[in-house]
Design a protein around this nucleic acid. Sequence first.
DNA 1: CTTTGAGATC
Length: 829
Amino acid sequence: MLNHLLLLLHSRTTILYLKSLRLNYFTSPIISRRFFSALAAQYDSIDTSFTNTSDPVKEILRGFNTFGTNNFLSCNQFQTLISSLNTHQIDWIFYYLRSLDENSALLFFNSIQNEHGFRHSRVSEFAVCHILAGKLRLKDLRQVLTKMLEDQGPGSGPFLCELLENSFKDWKFTYMVWDMLANVYAKSEMVHDALVVLDKMRDLNFQASISTYNNLMHNLRHTDMIWEIYNEVRASGIPQSMYTYTIFINSLCKHSRLKDAVDFFRKTTGKEFRPCVVSFNTLMSGLCNMGFVDVAKSFFCMMYKCAVLPDCYSYNTLIHGLCTVGSVEEALNFYEDMLGNGVEPDVVTYNILANGFRLLGSMNGAYVVVENMRLKGLSPNQVTYAILMCGHCRSGNIEEVMKLKEQMLAQGLQRSRVCDNVVLSCLCRCGNANEALRLFNEIEASGVKADLMSYSILVHELCKEGKIKMAMQVYRKMQSKGIIINSYAHGAILSSLCKRGRVVEARKFFNTLAVSEILLYNIMIDGYAKIGLVDEAVQLFGEIIDSGLTPTISTYNSLIYVFCKNEKLDEAKGLLQNLIIHGLVPTAMTYTALMDAYSRKGNMDVVLQLFSEMERNDVPPTVVTYTVIIKGFCEQRRLRQALQAFDDMQTRGLIPDQIVYNTLIQGFCEVKDTGAAKRFLILHNIQPSPVTYNILISGLCMEQNLTGADTLLGTLRNLDIALTKTAYSTIIKAHCVKGSASKAVMLFNEMRDMGHEISIRDYSAVINRLCKACHIDEVKIILRLMLLDRISPDQDMCVEMIKAFCRGGDKSSVFELFAEMIKSGIVFI
DNA sequence: CTTTGAGATC
């Protein structure tokens, strides 16, 4: 059979003619017709020698003949013929052609695939791979395998290994196909399958190439598996390439092992290969991302010493590093330097600079950069738009964001996932969860699939708005999509449940997660801490230790907070020592929580001790730290020291906030010196907040200066400044006790008219006070208001009122009230 | 193999 076909192919003048013209036998209708006609013409001679065999090829060749009347096949007939064959039959034709002539086999393979949409079996695809490997056509080999893996998808490793092993075991170049398979798996981000192939290769004693290792290491650069792979490379003794070194440096950087990265760089650079610009760039990028821009700059200088010229990446990396630390000016110097040295800036350069201005809050600057970019003949890309959109997103300018999105699409740029996420987070920032949800569905429907971040943004926002049910729905959808959820999305749900006091639910959710991250423990512990549940917090702390995780300073801060809240000051202080022993650095929060607790106990000595310890340990105090100190002194009526602390904080460059001012004003009021409070206000040119007015009014009331309080109220009214309910309550209470009952009623009315929500507690407070002072008429007015608000008096209030009515001899009111009590079910007859 | 843009506990 083989001989016959060989004869057939090589003796036919048609074929030789076509070959000499280097024409494709199959893709052109006429040629494929001729080719198969030629085959068909030989049918009889073949047939006679093979009538008694059941060779499948013979069957197929017989098939040719039935279409080949007059020894001609039309193009349509050829197609019909091909489509009438099954995969297995095609495989056989292909196999035979392969053994005759590899070029013909490849052409046959491609023509069927391209022209007739026929899907080859994996076997014939692998056969092609082996032909290509034999001819060292590695690019084509990669292409065939890339297509195959695209088709097969992740998880196909074991299947393809089995196929290769079973059908191609003795093929000469099979080790190359194996290697390329691992290579392409790694490159297509199907790392798991790549590892399966590699494993099998070890069994078969095939050595993987360095290119395959490089691809694999690159894809594993974020994981700890890379160390293992690199050790294998070293153990195998295969020569490493420059890429290997660069990838390894990159991975060390990604693991924040900067020192190791620098050491490795020093050890390898310039030894085997001449120093490589990409290695320099990689290292500089790692350094910049960790904030060591100065070190990166020194490597930039080193490049010149090594006779390596910085390229666009080098400049971009450094410019980016400078921009992220806010040194846009220096970044611009480097940009000038770049131009001077003849390195052409690209879109990325301008994007980085525009982003630098955005980070400084200067959108104008960003737009100027984009304008310069256009002048250079470069067009903004998706990233440029994302940067601009992000800038407007920060300030909540949704219109501008949407306008930019339109502009981007009008320029023919595709919407990108990041752009969608920027818009999504902008909507969320504006508190527009419904609109965000709508956009989210739109993203899902479009080609760009929502990713982990889109989901996280949405979950976070829904949680923030308290729409936890919806958040959980989105969360479950994310689970069902097979997205690997990281601790940020989990943290969003957990922390929003905690913030809303739904700690029990939070714990239930927490228990469903296989928590292995300290972040989630921290959120949960803090949830318990905020509501004072010390035992639960301590129990979780125990779990952290048991599971081998390392507590962070946040863990300790929350624990210290909850001990303080439970007035367990010794334990709290013990924790401070404990965390220092474990090598953690206390923060201002650590000390401030402790100081606040001691200050509440009136123990200012310890507060000051802690403060100096803080100084010794180089922990800079915050405004809150000073507020605690000031409040402590105020409560002890040590105003002079409070003011001293106030001055100290300003000398340190800390800018006092409203809370600091209000604390001091309250301090003045507590020593009954509203005069000093007002002078302080004027001296520091303070714009009083509603809280400030509350403090002042209550101060005036405490001084028994009701006239002063009334005057202040009048002034505020004239200035159209609305009072809070607390301020009203304070002054009403004072009027009930010492001043004019009618004024109290008037103010109560005013408070009610201002639209403040009046509760039964507010009513009972004023009624009880009026009753005590025997202002019966006023009691009756308030009672009427209360009934008007559809609030029924409770039993205690009724008792007070009846007592007061009896004392005043107002029998009819007693009866009226009694009737009301029966009506509202307080008294049964 | 290297550069830019989005979410993120106290």
